[in-house]
């Protein structure tokens, strides 16, 4: 290709400073795939989205989940999503921004959901992840605990677990931990 390089190099010398190219940032393949995921979202009424940086930043968004069944009925839980440019090769990073008394979510907002880490596959999408999160509220499970105490209570005494969840969601202490109101 050296002939071609030669021609191009000579042209460049001639055309110096006449570049009219406005530098544009290209959308990554990850952004395009995410655009598809988001525009095809089909969410239940209990899940709504927020785009804090406006309609053109899809890589950082928030999801509000209002469970319509189960222990967490009536609560509102905010999740932040950060999506990498090599999505879907890598799972979105999800954190729970609402402090919640939950066996699978710790007090820092880390979420134990298999499809967010060990079981993530590029065929999954944002819709699956949101449904997965929703599922955690309708069916919290004590077998994958991140909040050890909450998991033990759910396993040994679901009645007490239920009242702990109520207390936490209305704004109050469970043990030594204070939970702000989220209802």
């Amino acid at each position: 290709m050296i002939k071609l390089f030669k021609v191009k190099e000579k042209q460049r010398e001639l055309a110096e400073n006449t570049s009219n190219g406005v530098p544009v940032k290209k959308q990554s393949a990850g952004e395009l795939r995410l655009h598809k995921d988001i525009s095809e979202l089909n969410l239940p009424k209990s899940c709504t989205m927020q785009f804090p940086n406006g309609k053109d930043d899809l890589m950082n968004f928030e999801v509000l989940i209002r469970p319509d069944d189960g222990y967490y009925l009536g609560g509102t839980f905010l999740f932040s999503f950060h999506v990498s440019p090599i999505y879907p090769h890598e799972a979105p990073k999800v954190k729970c921004k609402t402090k919640v008394y939950h066996p699978n979510i710790d007090l820092e907002g880390n979420v134990c959901l298999n499809i967010l880490r060990e079981d993530w596959k590029p065929v999954l999408n944002i819709n699956t992840v949101i449904y997965g999160l929703y599922h955690l509220f309708t069916e919290p499970n004590y077998e994958d605990p991140l909040n050890h105490d909450a998991a033990a209570v759910l396993r040994d005494n679901p009645k007490i677990f239920e009242s702990n969840v109520r207390r936490a969601m209305s704004g109050g202490y469970v043990g030594q931990t204070f939970f702000p109101r989220c209802m």
């Binding site: 544009v24 952004e31 655009h35 525009s39 089909n42 309609k55 899809l58």
Partner: peptide, 22 residues
């Protein structure tokens, strides 16, 4: 169809909040 050009989302079918904005 949903349409995007150079990182600007011209039209989004979903979710409702983006559909409204576009």
């Amino acid at each position: 169809a949903s349409v995007t050009h150079r990182g600007k989302n011209l039209y989004m079918q979903a979710p409702p909040v983006l559909e409204e904005m576009t």
